[in-house]
Design a protein around this nucleic acid. Structure first.
Lengths: 159, 159
DNA sequence: GGTGAAACTTCTAATAA
DNA sequence: TTATTAGAAGTTTCACC
């Protein structure tokens, strides 16, 4: 996949939209001393190129009653069962992320649950999937860093 | 933290905005058979309550040249060094998420890098932090699940 | 609570530079 | 590529249910 060339203006636009996707284009234009039309054209171009894949809300899951986060490493009996197990994991909505990995585990996933009891149920469900030989759970005591903005700044300055 | 009470209309609004934060309120209103003013008031209420913390763009990091994802488990020499190590990790922008965890590791983080060589540099930097005794890396071969929408649907139906 | 309409702001596409 | 512009579209407020 080719690395995309974005200039400084594109970076600044992305930077403002990452912070708040509803930032009016007129505000962005004012700050960057360009016209709103230009902002519009640039954003459209980045959308067409697939750089901007979409936008999403950041919700407070704790306030919604989901304060439990854990990472679960999965050992499979045989590697060729990966696809099947992933399909099963995909049916558990509390599993928000899953990766096929090298190293210790075959599959590695993140779960978000209401509490310990709820998490236990989810993990048992994972353990029960055919092909899973065992799992190893790491409970998050605190999410200390979660910031893609810093990465974006770095990516921009890299180019 | 109290669980917040949202009704069916709030859920539907969130559901549409999670999919695309720029969905016009007029569209939402039309679909839900309410007025755009009501959508506006409801969204504002959820923002004020902190349920909606913000909005962000979903970018294609692969197209931006960052196709490497790994999870790194960190073993500390002493637990009381946690805060110090996290501060250091926070200075490495390629570390996008970090959790203090129970279980095998003391700290667990996610890195996003350009390639293997770049990842090596980052991991070496982590290894070099005072208080880190050793690390264990799991390289993502494939991000198979990444979907908070499913979780939201479930949360809604839970209530 | 919600509505509907007015006033205001923003978007978007066409044209021109 | 960018700017300007003007009509379309969206947001926000408010008097009134």
């Amino acid at each position: 996949m080719a690395k995309f060339k974005l200039d400084e203006v594109d970076h600044q636009i992305l930077d403002m939209l990452i912070e708040n996707t509803r930032t009016p284009f007129t505000d962005i234009a004012k700050k960057l001393l360009i016209s709103a039309g230009t902002v519009h054209v640039r954003v459209k171009k980045m959308e067409d190129a697939g750089i901007i894949k979409g936008s999403s809300l950041t919700l407070d899951y704790v306030k919604l009653g989901y304060s439990f986060i854990a990472y679960v490493g999965i050992f499979l009996e045989k590697t060729h069962q990966t696809k099947f197990v992933l399909e099963r994991l995909n049916q558990i909505p509390y599993i928000t992320v899953a990766h096929i990995t090298t190293g210790k585990f075959n599959i590695f996933c993140k779960i978000r649950a209401k509490d310990t009891k709820h998490a236990k149920e989810i993990i048992f469900k994972v353990d029960d999937i055919d092909g899973v030989s065992r799992t190893e759970t790491m409970i998050s005591l605190e999410e200390s860093i979660n910031d893609k903005r810093r990465l974006m700044h770095t990516i921009f300055n890299d180019l």
